[in-house]
Write a protein that binds this DNA or RNA. Structure first.
Lengths: 202, 202
DNA sequence: GTCTATACAGTGATAGAC
DNA sequence: GTCTATCACTGTATAGAC
């Protein structure tokens, strides 16, 4: 349960960066929060930039774990309806949204995206790309199985996921101000219902 | 054609803030770029924060002009098909996307959203809210006129616009790195075609 | 409206004692 | 692995001459 100094630095930096942005947070502020001297920090991280880098890399690994492996897809899809599958993904996603560290990571990505090439890469590749590619495969399989209407799988992936990205943006801004998120959560539910209606075979 | 010092400060700050973020840009950097002394800047702006504020307020006014006034809606809709109307909006939006200052403003909003309450307000209210409300009115009218299928106007507004927000995010990251945006632009076209198909009365 | 001069707190980072 | 001490530099901002 005891956190190492390195972990304390990581967690504190994660928290402060996500609130003020990398540039507005000083080494002094991080170390003061933890209760160590500035010089001690350099025993754990080479410099300030490396703290951010370690946060971004950690997030990237973390995020890649949220989707089920492609190899297991056939088996999963054989045993569930399209509706159940998408709604399970939805629950998964909601859990991620409600996770405090997930929100912090998301904020850092948003805020550092034009200052930090790695942030852009994570947003484009891991966040947009990976999810869209995954969904395209899912919809391709479901169409072949004749379980949903035959519409371009890539288009379906976009129609399903892109609104979710926007809702996540909205959700996180509201959360940051401690405002009510019921409406945007309801929108997400409605979106999924609507999408299921579109792909349903009549 | 000659820019006043105040305009130079505004433009330079807009450019630098949009690349590095507010906190990472110093007064020194702004004044050095223009070729004046730091102290001279304070003749035009009270402090650094006020420069950002003036940028945000300028953007807000600018953005509110991109939608046609509600009063003119009935007349516009009487003379155009739903398809023509949405495609005109699409062109309008694309023009905005390709505008350099529009891209800079968007980047600033993204980057300052958790540090600057006004940025959050603009994103939520002016960017998300205004457009969704506008579209909801449009779709309500089109349904009453029996020109599109009868689906919840609010839901239609979301299904239409939210993917566009995400595509704008993607577009601007690609643009920032000078990468090819053909694919995301194609996605936007496909999305609109797909949406038109959904709302079409058979 | 721009300049010089100045203030002074905060910045990331290092050397070396313990 | 943490500390003290110190570094050179950069940060915003102001006073007052021209």
């Amino acid at each position: 349960m005891k956190k190492s100094t390195k972990e304390k630095i990581f967690d504190t930096a994660l928290d402060l960066f996500s609130q003020k942005g990398y540039s507005a947070v000083s080494i002094r502020e991080i170390t003061r929060t933890i209760g160590i001297k500035e010089s001690s920090l350099y025993n754990h991280y080479k410099n300030k930039e490396q703290i951010l880098e370690s946060i971004l890399i950690h997030f990237r690994n973390d995020f890649s774990k949220t989707l089920p492996p492609i190899e297991t897809l056939d088996q999963i899809l054989a045993n569930t309806t399209a509706e159940t599958f998408l709604k399970a993904g939805h629950r998964n996603f909601k859990e991620y949204m409600e996770n405090e560290n997930g929100q912090k990571m998301w904020r850092i990505l948003q805020v550092e995206q034009f200052r930090e090439p790695l942030a852009r890469e994570i947003i484009l590749r891991d966040f947009f790309g990976t999810v869209i590619d995954f969904l395209e495969i899912v919809f391709t399989k479901l169409i072949k199985m004749n379980r949903i209407r035959s519409i371009s799988p890539k288009l379906l992936a976009i129609e399903y996921q892109y609104p979710v990205f926007s809702m996540l943006t909205e959700y996180n801004i509201l959360k940051f101000d401690g405002k009510d998120t019921a409406e945007v959560e309801q929108r997400l539910d409605q979106h999924i219902e609507f999408f299921l209606e579109i792909i349903k075979i009549n």
